[in-house]
């Protein structure tokens, strides 16, 4: 496989980076990069590490890194995690408030620990950290429960001071959404599988609406909704398909849809085949909407019609 780290690859322009993958030789990974400057979304770094671990550290090679910004890759832990001596010496900065380096999370206990360790690094107040913790918990647990990835979930995040935004990337090299969801549904292709995965009430664990005792089939819908309410990008790439929720313009009222294709989005098919699933997401802190407000919106879109359809009493929880 050959992969080129471009000058720029963020969620708004991620497609050229993905389209450029050469997946012809699955036994090794050759990474090259832009000679002048590298500036990439954490999703890209998570993908790089995930691919590297899949082929085996000894089968990863880097072309000469010339970009001035190459220490960034060192700082984010890419070379360390891949066991490569980059020859780059950096002055270690305290990551607090700026980034979460590449991390591999393999089980539930590790995730709980990771989240508790991560919060101080984000240096945000409780209100801002809430959706971030939520997103990471749900995305990583999805990897554990659905991906069958032997390397667990690969995650990293970056805070961009100028745009006051946190970018998160989570990747796995598991079975991918289509194979996972094929057990209980029958999507005709990867894009339909992504569509189902983002639809509330659908889970790969059962064909029954509402999910199982352990999986509601609502986690990804919540996450996409967080991005939508905050007018941010959300990208999901699995198999040969990529779904991208586009930013909602400021002059448009936010409306959540159960069907992700009803959102303002782009859909790309016939891309190089990613064996597994990758999610990229931005959370703009300037645009940040109160998490409780998001829950109100979700409840409205999610369940409003129950009143229309149900004639019997709707039971409500009792708070004492």
């Amino acid at each position: 496989m050959k992969l080129h780290i471009p000058n720029s690859a963020f969620l708004g322009n991620i497609e050229p980076f993905i389209s450029s993958f050469d997946l012809s030789d699955q036994e090794k990974l050759e990474i090259t990069s832009n000679e002048k400057w590298i500036s990439v979304h954490p999703m890209v770094l998570s993908m790089l590490l995930s691919l590297g671990l899949s082929v085996g550290k000894k089968n990863v090679s880097f072309g000469e890194l010339k970009a001035k910004s190459r220490p960034y890759l060192e700082r984010m832990g890419l070379f360390k995690e891949l066991g490569v001596d980059s020859g780059i010496s950096i002055v270690e900065h305290e990551p607090s408030g700026r980034f979460i380096p590449l991390s591999r999370i393999s089980d539930s206990e590790e995730l709980t620990h990771f989240i508790s360790e991560m919060v101080p690094l984000l240096h945000t107040d409780a209100e801002h950290s809430e959706p971030i913790k939520y997103v990471i918990s749900e995305l990583v647990r999805n990897v554990f429960e659905h991906s069958e990835s032997s390397h667990g979930a690969i995650i990293c995040a970056q805070f961009y001071k100028k745009s006051n935004r946190i970018a998160i990337g989570v990747a796995d090299a598991g079975i991918g959404i289509k194979e996972s969801i094929d057990v209980s549904h029958n999507p005709k292709n990867d894009m339909e599988a992504i569509r189902l995965a983002l639809t509330p009430g659908v889970t790969g664990k059962t064909s029954r609406s509402g999910g199982t005792e352990f999986n509601a089939g609502a986690g990804l819908f919540f996450i996409k909704s967080i991005a939508k309410v905050n007018r941010d990008f959300f990208v999901m790439y699995s198999g040969s398909s990529l779904y991208k929720l586009l930013k909602t313009p400021q002059n448009k009222k936010i409306k959540l849809f159960p069907d992700p294709f009803s959102d303002r989005c782009t859909k790309r098919e016939h891309l190089p085949y990613w064996k597994g699933t990758v999610v990229g997401m931005d959370i703009s802190l300037d645009q940040h909407q109160d998490f409780d407000h998001l829950l109100d919106l979700i409840r409205n879109v999610y369940f409003e019609d129950i009143k229309k359809r149900k004639k019997e009493k709707i039971w409500r929880p009792r708070f004492v």
């Binding site: 009430g201 409780d292 829950l295 109100d296 999610y302 129950i306 409500r316």
Partner: peptide
């Protein structure tokens, strides 16, 4: 408030899909 809302969502959701 957050916990209450999530509980309400799950409770209503389970009645919708039972």
């Amino acid at each position: 408030e957050t916990v209450q809302k999530l509980i309400k969502i799950v409770v209503v959701y389970m009645q919708e899909t039972k």
